[in-house]
Design a binder for these strands. Sequence first.
DNA 1: GTCTATAGTCGGATAGAC
DNA 2: GTCTATCCGACTATAGAC
Lengths: 231, 231
Amino acid sequence: MSAAKKKAKRPTRTRAAESAGYTKGEHTRQRILDAALQAFGEASFKEVTTRRISAAAEVSLPTLTYYFGDKEGLYRACAEAVVDRYRDRTSGAATTATQSLGEPCSPEQARAHLKMVIRALAGLLVGSSDAERWVRFVGRELRDPGPAFEILYERLWHPGAELAARLIARIRGRVEPADDDRIHALLLLSSFLAFQSGRTISMRSLKWSKIGSAELELVQSCLDELIDAID
Amino acid sequence: MSAAKKKAKRPTRTRAAESAGYTKGEHTRQRILDAALQAFGEASFKEVTTRRISAAAEVSLPTLTYYFGDKEGLYRACAEAVVDRYRDRTSGAATTATQSLGEPCSPEQARAHLKMVIRALAGLLVGSSDAERWVRFVGRELRDPGPAFEILYERLWHPGAELAARLIARIRGRVEPADDDRIHALLLLSSFLAFQSGRTISMRSLKWSKIGSAELELVQSCLDELIDAID
DNA sequence: GTCTATAGTCGGATAGAC
DNA sequence: GTCTATCCGACTATAGAC
């Protein structure tokens, strides 16, 4: 509860071994982070135990403390890892779309960009198996704000939602997005998020045994229809 | 973990006092249920403590055991209470729409019915303040299946999603819903659910300080647009 | 860097009095 | 019906050896 140690005591690891690329410590740290990300994808901050994470990472309990200070520090580190990895994989479509907003852009171009952004999001979820867990992690934290809310909202959700809202505004011939555009963006992103986040129910409703690229393609064409309907 | 005591030991309360309407026990039981419903609306099964519920209901801890057997029994009782109360308040629009499916029905009639069902859902959320918590409870359980998943899926979600899918099929001139119709229904209901369930983020994105009937009206007109776009 | 051992807290459930 | 008292397991975090 002491407010001072925001960044935890993050191991110094200053001297030596930087030429080798990885110190042994960095490797351990990464294993812990992976295990934590997986765990926090499946359950909430309170539900996940540090014991479970340490077991999955095959380290002892105090090792988590050594690298991340406390449970909250580990949680925040997960959020930052998600933001980074997510950025790497969607920056393409996002920056293209963002650039297009700088110059004059026809409604149809904006529409195409919006579809592209949504497709990039969806593609992310098919390509890597753990991206599915990131979505659940992010969705949960945004619905029920916890220690990582600010990180995820400011660096992930807000930029994405704002981009979508601006594209929708352009589709409608506006420059600045109005409430109406933002609500549309919110519903669009929410439905996509909910579909992924609620895989269990989606699959059960549709009698699918998995959500592969074929299934996702169907969902995407529905989303495209929704985007085509804007205006 | 013993499979036998499905219904917990539910107090007998067989004899007498049925003419008075409520025994003292029923009143206590209800207070506990209300407190539990509120708590489970705000946090998950694991996160909520029985201690907190008993404190909120102003009874001692073993009293919960007396009425509901154990924590899971209480949780399931909450789910059943939600199903019942929800049914009471939306049966109007739902049965009207369901009946319309029995007889020949034009696409435009089906579209109007679908809008009506969505509006009934939304109205439920404005009318009573605790309905908002039911939505969070239901949404959480459906996303992350727990002890009450079957109850909520079979008696709440599935009927609703199937009704929506059938109405969408009719809008498109079909009789039996195809995958495409079901996906559309899923996205529609999900976006609505997500909007409510993620109030924090919705309000922050739109810079609203509350979600009252005026705000909900805006959301509904967006949803109407989405419904108008079907076909 | 990573461990074992343990302190201190809290949660679910039960025994048994009234 | 409702309570007080209590057991026992599981959790987070820390002390200190290696």
